[in-house]
Design a binder for these strands. Structure first.
Lengths: 227, 227
DNA sequence: CCAAAAGTGTTTGCTCTACACCCATGG
DNA sequence: CCATGGGTGTAGAGCAAACACTTTTGG
């Protein structure tokens, strides 16, 4: 398919979807089945439709790829270099999304994609367009927001143990944390509360299950969660 | 002028230009001379041209408005609600800019604008489009970046006194700061250095003049400048 | 000599860090 | 009873906040 260069740019969304898969911070990528960059991995995304907001477009694309509609989504940055796409002028508004453990995404290849797959951020393949840059931007934002928001809630199930929460931090920040200090700090912020439940069936002392006090996105007024 | 709704959105830039004018944090606004929102105040901005990057477009528009080319500019957020502009689908990439004391902007009315003026952020008039939202977003970003970057350098002359620097912080954060603690903190970060010069002609002890060690944008790895 | 802002240290409380042992369960 | 991760407290160091007086100049 060949698209001519237009006078007016087209507006697209590209989405960096993070999830923790097999204890690795991973990104959803699709393998392109058409030119340009055929065979390369790329971020899911697509054109914004007429009378569709940018966020709606991102939600729609994500639903098409993963089947999940209810997802944390936040605008990242807009990339608009004139020749970032060889097909013509495409301004891409990037989003970053988090998929919580409570969902099981069903990856569906779509028109442009021959495969969709979770790939660990540590060793990403070569990527189409300027998608590497977009991902690096998203990673920065993710690490940053971990420190002053309750964003980790978006990567866990409704009920979780403190160790699971700590692992989210460790995986994303890429370093081991002290268990006691982690607990002290996270508890001091009143973001989570204990429940009556404990995780059953484990071959060790059953851990307390916790939940976030709210599902809403909370922005702390300081970077309180710097570990 | 009536523009029809197009199938492809147009891409525009809108710029929130901050400067400190008469000890007030101010924004450059233009009074619209044409419909829609004729007579309302609006952010400077305009359409992105073919083969022009987003940032270039912002720089060009700013130069047209203020005559200043060398300016701190950073992308903010992209607003793309389908009906944010009654003329049709316009996706607006917003930028935020800082004008340093070393420049004297010459405000020039342009095609769409009957007047350009600095208005204090404390009491802004009613604004066209969703520009109020854009400004509120820019203000948040400005306050936030003050705490972990050397962005204040963009609002001062090359040489400045510590009190002037402190005033930038006080004006933007909207609170008085302790002089001794301010100095201690700012000096501990190695962002500025003393010069041999002192400000002359003042009716009090002549203050030391300082400069920023670099003109480059520095991002600290912590929010060190929380006062 | 007066007015005005510049410049300068110390004490106190709080927060962050480092660190090791017992507990509850399944098998 | 063994293996496994869960759960808990404290002491010391470093950082942040509060606070008042002396200095230097122009007029």
């Amino acid at each position: 398919m060949k698209i001519q260069q237009r006078e007016k740019p087209q507006v697209a969304v590209d989405i960096v979807v993070f999830a923790i898969i097999n204890n690795k911070l991973s990104i959803l990528l699709i393998r392109r089945g058409t030119k340009p960059f055929k065979g390369y991995w790329a971020l899911p995304g697509g054109m914004v439709l007429k009378n569709e907001s940018l966020k709606k477009a991102a939600i729609r694309e994500l639903k098409e790829e993963t089947g999940i509609g209810d997802i944390y989504l936040e605008q990242l940055y807009t990339f608009g270099a004139p020749f970032r796409d060889p097909r013509g002028r495409i301004v891409s508004v990037s989003y970053f999304a988090l998929i919580s453990k409570k969902y099981k995404p069903v990856l569906k290849p779509t028109t442009d994609a021959v495969a969709a797959q979770w790939l660990g951020v540590k060793k990403l393949p070569r990527l189409a367009f300027d998608h590497k840059e977009i991902i690096s931007y998203a990673l920065k934002r993710l690490r940053w927001k971990l420190e002053y928001t309750n964003i980790a809630s978006q990567l866990l199930s409704n009920y979780f143990t403190l160790s699971e929460l700590q692992h989210v931090y460790e995986i994303i920040l890429g370093k081991k944390l002290d268990k006691r200090n982690f607990r002290k700090k996270i508890l001091s912020l009143d973001l989570i509360k204990p429940t009556r439940r404990k995780r059953k069936g484990v071959a060790y002392r059953p851990p307390q299950l916790w939940k976030f006090i709210t599902n809403k996105h909370i922005v702390l007024d300081k970077r309180e969660l710097v570990f």
